[in-house]
């Protein structure tokens, strides 16, 4: 298993290399001139040219790519075109707020989704099930932007219980993570429901009942544990997306995270930051994917690693 783990890690290197080429080409293919954007709309052409020289953007693309990869390998991600700050420092600063927000959103939404999904599955076809799934659909389709402002208006402005935005203390995590997790909770509920319904048809569930086990144990122990594989897969996927930082939620809640950073960087065609962030997202996704695969083995010992 350790062997499997190490091989998977090694396999990430070529993948990341391909991604780096793709990301580089894609970003440079986008219309938009960073020098002009940095200079601002009211700048003269002379101002723009002086910025272009200052940022080495007049170099051939291939050298810019070589620089980028050299930077990646040495883990020095270069400097932001916009602020001149080291990109690694910017990402390090934005990573933790997004990380904690993602963790909170994931934890509550997965717990909620599991419970709601299992209850819905057990009472399949009942009014409770329909109501739950209606809520889930609403959760998926409700725009984060709107939900976030609604929560902020009620809890921060109207009741004054929580701060509106920013990340200064742990309680600031509540509203953004609620907003961010709503969609995930809904997805998890639906996923859990269908996974539990599938597992409930399995022979070993009938065996569990034939043993005279309590229904509670049949569902929450025997069925749920087996239903966890698709659920964990989905949770991993969602976590990957969350860790990328939600641009909308971070904007609404003034969250100093990776989503805000990316949005600014894209708006200003801050190549160094965009490239580094997308490489980070790719790496996170690959790692989470690996973690999920390793988790399978703990959930279901029948799964073997090759």
């Amino acid at each position: 298993m350790l062997n499997y783990f190490l091989r998977r890690l090694a396999a990430m290197v070529p993948v990341l290399f391909l991604i780096s080429i793709f990301v580089f080409l894609f970003i440079h293919a986008l219309p938009g001139d960073p020098a002009r954007l940095l200079a601002g709309e009211t700048a003269t052409q002379a101002e723009v040219e002086s910025i272009r020289r200052a940022l080495n953007l007049d170099q051939p693309l291939i050298w810019q790519y070589v620089d980028f990869v050299a930077n990646l390998v040495t883990l020095d991600l270069g400097n932001s075109l916009r602020t001149g700050e080291p990109v690694s420092q910017m990402i390090a600063r934005a990573f933790w707020p997004t990380f904690w927000l993602s963790i909170c959103a994931l934890v509550w939404s997965v717990l909620f989704g599991l419970v709601a999904g299992v209850i819905s599955a057990v009472r399949r076809g009942s009014p409770g099930d329909h109501a739950g799934m209606f809520l889930a659909v609403s959760g998926i389709s409700m725009p984060n932007f709107w939900l976030g402002l609604l929560l902020m208006q009620y809890f921060s402005v109207h009741l004054g219980w929580l701060g509106t935005s920013g990340f200064d203390e742990p309680s600031d995590l509540i509203l953004p993570s609620l907003t961010l997790g709503a969609g995930v909770a809904a997805v998890m509920a639906r996923f859990t429901r269908s996974a539990v319904i599938d597992v409930a048809r399995e022979d070993f569930i009938r065996t569990a009942r034939a043993k005279g086990l309590r229904e509670r144990i049949v569902i929450w122990k025997h069925a749920l544990r087996n239903a966890l594989i698709p659920v964990v897969t989905m949770a991993g996927l969602q976590f990957g997306f969350l860790l990328g930082g939600s641009i909308v939620v971070e904007k609404v809640f003034r969250w100093p995270g990776l989503g805000s950073l990316l949005l600014d960087a894209i708006n200003f065609r801050d190549y160094a930051v965009v490239q580094s962030e997308i490489m980070l997202f790719s790496l996170q996704f690959l790692l989470i994917n690996l973690a999920v695969d390793m988790l399978y083995g703990f959930i279901n010992p029948a799964i073997r690693y090759k």
Binding site: D33, R36, I266, N267
Partner: peptide, 12 residues
């Protein structure tokens, strides 16, 4: 989009 506009209008 802002960046596209600025490229088409002010750069090229």
């Amino acid at each position: 989009e802002g960046a596209t506009r600025s490229e088409k209008l002010f750069s090229s």
